[in-house]
């Protein structure tokens, strides 16, 4: 008996991760993902653990290589979209992506910005990033898209003298600050500790 749920988490990666882990506690494991769809099958409670990873900054080959690496580790991996886009033949420039920006299309990483990684629960915590240096880099890849959104909205707000854009800009400042705090914290820790 499979069970279907429809949810949209957007950029709230941690919320998505927590929800999947809650479902696992209740005895459901993920078997399929769609735009907003999460399909589960029944299993023993706490059989698996989940991590949600942002990969929007990677190239097509880079994302595939990362995906395959996790599969080789014995994890089950799902691609997931971060936004709700009903689109075909979409081409978008991502200036915040690695190596000074990349073009994302439907054939590459567009609508495949996230990986949901499932591990058989072995009682140990499931973390993908353990060293401070690596955490710093990962939080940077999370901050940069928000930083670009913030800059764009700020320019619109000032250019058009628009309060609405100003409010949106302030809202997008929140994730930038949250991730920036993590970056600085891990950078500081990386000076004296390896992990």
């Amino acid at each position: 008996m499979s069970k279907k749920y429809y949810r949209f988490f957007g950029g709230l990666l941690k919320a998505q991760e927590n929800w999947l882990n809650k479902m696992s506690e209740k005895g459901y494991r993920l078997i399929r993902t769609g735009r907003m769809l999460y399909e589960f099958e029944e299993c023993k409670p706490n059989q698996s653990k989940y991590c949600v990873e942002f990969i929007g900054q990677k190239s097509k080959d880079g994302a595939k290589d990362y995906h395959d690496f996790f599969e080789d580790m014995g994890y089950k991996v799902f691609y997931k979209n971060i936004n709700l886009n009903y689109s075909v033949g979409k081409v978008r420039w991502r200036p915040w992506a690695e190596k000074g920006g990349r073009i994302a299309t439907n054939a590459t990483t567009f609508n495949r910005e996230l990986l949901i990684i499932e591990k058989e629960n072995d009682g140990k915590p499931f973390e993908l990033h353990t060293s401070h240096k690596d955490k710093e880099n990962y939080y940077k890849s999370l901050r940069n898209p928000w930083l670009m959104i913030l800059l764009m909205l700020a320019i619109f707000a000032v250019g058009n003298r628009s309060v609405v854009f100003g409010i949106f800009a302030l809202i997008s400042l929140i994730p930038v600050l949250v991730y920036q705090t993590q970056i600085l914290k891990n950078r500081q820790d990386a000076k004296t500790k390896e992990w």
């Binding site: 990362y66 690496f69 996790f70 580790m73 994890y75 990684i117 973390e127 993908l128 353990t130 060293s131």
Partner: peptide
Amino acid sequence: RLALGAGTLYGA
């Protein structure tokens, strides 16, 4: 004592 996360291992 040293348990590496898969993402960190990938980077390393």
